[in-house]
Design a protein around this nucleic acid. Structure first.
Length: 210
DNA sequence: AGCCAGGCTACCG
DNA sequence: CGGTAGCATGGC
């Protein structure tokens, strides 16, 4: 919690989602899901263009994504990279989303989808469905691995679940609503801190006050 | 010019 | 099982 407070004071609220707050409830959630897929191993800057692109064409909608021709979709999401894979993943997620229009998918439901791994599943559960799953990405591993095991290692040999458990157990006392709020913000703050201070390929540890 | 970005799958030993 | 090549674009 001390680390969280430090980061929040340093950077403030991160406001990741939604990108377009004028969307209706359901589409707003779907926009988050789209973002989770598109940003896989891709800078958010490149993804943002695509999200705006889709928004302007009224395609932030599971139904519309299913209707649009897959080659047209590929062209629209081009700048987010891996467009062949990601177009198929968006189609699968759109169908999935409609299937769960009256219920909430579980983590296992999400992981059954081709193109959804642990991080993407947790991002969707946390940011789109407001469920308390801490998201572990490469930044998070670098950040917390450095604090727990020392700087300069590659932090292999730990499973995704081990990293996640560290955060879950640290905040087990909070009620669900507070966890969700904190997990969303904490993860985004860690990303910001890593872009700013724990920059890959360079060592700015002398600038690290944590 | 080269490395990196809010990963996942398939396939290898 | 753990480890890794391939996927692709744009920014710095």
């Amino acid at each position: 919690m001390e680390i969280y407070d430090f980061l929040f004071e340093k950077y403030g609220e991160q406001r990741w989602w939604p990108v377009h707050s004028s969307l209706g409830e359901g589409d707003r959630r779907f926009e988050i899901i789209i973002g989770c897929i598109l940003t896989q191993n891709t800078s958010w800057k490149n993804v943002e263009k695509v999200v705006d692109n889709l928004y302007e064409r009224g395609l932030i909608s599971a139904k519309k994504i299913l209707e649009v021709d897959v080659d047209v979709l590929k062209d629209l999401i081009r700048s987010a990279g891996y467009y062949n894979q990601k177009a198929e993943r968006l189609k699968r997620l759109a169908r999935f989303y409609l299937n769960f229009s009256n219920s909430v998918p579980t983590r296992e439901d999400l992981l059954e989808l081709n193109g959804v791994g642990e991080e993407t599943a947790d991002s969707i559960l946390l940011y789109a469905y407001d469920l308390p799953y801490f998201v572990v990405d490469t930044y998070t591993k670098r950040f917390i691995g450095c604090l727990l095991e020392g700087e300069g290692k590659n932090f292999k040999g730990h499973s995704y679940g081990e990293w996640q458990d560290f955060f879950h157990s640290a905040f087990f006392k909070l009620d669900e609503e507070k966890k969700v709020k904190l997990f969303k913000e904490f993860h985004a703050l860690i990303v910001q801190y890593c872009k700013d201070v724990c920059v890959k390929g360079r060592k700015f540890c002398e600038d690290c006050n944590i």
